[in-house]
Amino acid sequence: MLTLHAAIDKILKFVCCLLFISMVGVASWQVIARYVLNNPSTVSEALLRFSLVWLSMLAIAYVTGQREHVRLTLLTDKLTGNWRFFSDFSIELLFIIFAAVVLIYGGMQATSNSMSQIYPMLNIPKGLLYLSLPVSGSLIIVYCLNNCLILYKNKYFIRRETP
C-alpha cells in the first residue's frame, strides 16, 4: 500500500508542477501579448482558469494524502492512546465521506450535466473542468484509506510491543 501511496505522490507532484509551470508560461504570454504586442490573447485567461481549478483540486488531494490538511489541533494534540487513534481515524473517515458524497457524487452530477455545454474560448466541454472533482475525490479516498491502514497498523504494532 505504501508503494501505491508513493506512486500517486510522484504522479501528483509531476502533474501539479507541470500545471504550475504551464500557468506561469501562459500568464507571461498574456502579459506580453497585451502590453508589448497590443494584441491580448483571448484563450489565455480561460486556460489559466481551467488550469487553476485542476491544480487546486489535485493539490488538495496531495495535501490530504500527506495529512497536512487544515485541521484544528488544539484538542487532538492533547489526546493520547486510544483517544488519539479514534480522533485521527474519525478525521480520515469524515474525509472519505466528504470525498464520496460531495466530490465524487456531486462532481459526477456536475460533470454529466455540463458535458453538453462548450467552454467558449477553449472549445472543449465544460464537463472537463468539473471532472477535477471526482478525480480528486477518488484520490482523496485512496489516500485516506491508506492513512487509515497506517493508523491501524501503528496502533496494532505499538500495542503488541508494549507489555
Rank of each mutant, 00 (worst) to 15 (best):
L12Y: 03
T42S: 07
D77S: 13
I91T: 11
L131Y: 01
Y105P: 01
I96R: 03
I32C: 09
W29G: 01
G106V: 08
A33N: 10
I96M: 13
L47G: 00
S56Q: 03
I91V: 13
F85G: 05
S132T: 03
I60S: 08
C148N: 10
E68D: 14
V15D: 03
L18T: 11
I32D: 06
L75F: 03
A61I: 03
L12M: 14
Y35R: 02
I60M: 12
S138V: 12
M1R: 05
I140L: 07
L139P: 02
Y62L: 15
L18Y: 04
Y105R: 10
I91C: 09
M121T: 02
I150P: 01
M57I: 04
R34S: 12
V142N: 07
L2M: 08
M121L: 11
M121Q: 11
V63Q: 09
T42Q: 10
K10M: 07
N123C: 06
C148F: 01
T76H: 03
K153Y: 15
I140D: 09
P125Y: 14
I11C: 08
L128I: 04
W29N: 04
N154R: 08
R71M: 13
Y143I: 05
L4Q: 05
I140E: 08
R49K: 15
A100N: 05
T111P: 00
C144Y: 05
V63D: 08
Y62I: 14
V43E: 12
I124K: 00
Q109D: 15
Y105F: 12
R49L: 09
R67G: 09
Y156K: 11
Y130H: 11
Y35K: 01
L133T: 07
P163V: 12
C17K: 08
I60A: 13
I118D: 09
L151R: 04
K13N: 14
L145M: 13
T73W: 00
F89G: 09
K78P: 02
A100G: 11
L55C: 03
S51W: 00
L122D: 04
S28K: 11
R159L: 09
L133W: 03
V53S: 05
V70T: 08
M1K: 04
F95R: 02
W83N: 09
K13G: 06
H5Y: 14
C16F: 00
R84K: 14
N113W: 10
V24S: 04
M115T: 01
T76A: 10
T42P: 02
L79Q: 14
A100W: 05
L103G: 09
D88N: 09
F89A: 15
R34V: 03
F20Y: 06
P40N: 09
R34G: 09
G106M: 07
I140R: 01
I150Y: 05
M121S: 10
L94F: 11
C17P: 00
N123D: 15
P134T: 13
L37Q: 08
N39F: 10
N147I: 05
L94M: 15
S136C: 11
G106P: 02
M121D: 13
A46W: 00
L103S: 11
I104F: 01
L133K: 03
R160G: 02
S44L: 02
L37V: 06
M57S: 06
T162G: 07
R49E: 11
L37T: 07
V142A: 15
K10F: 07
L48S: 05
V24Y: 01
Q66G: 04
F50P: 00
G65S: 06
G107M: 02
Q66R: 10
Y35W: 13
V15W: 01
V26N: 00
K153S: 14
S136A: 15
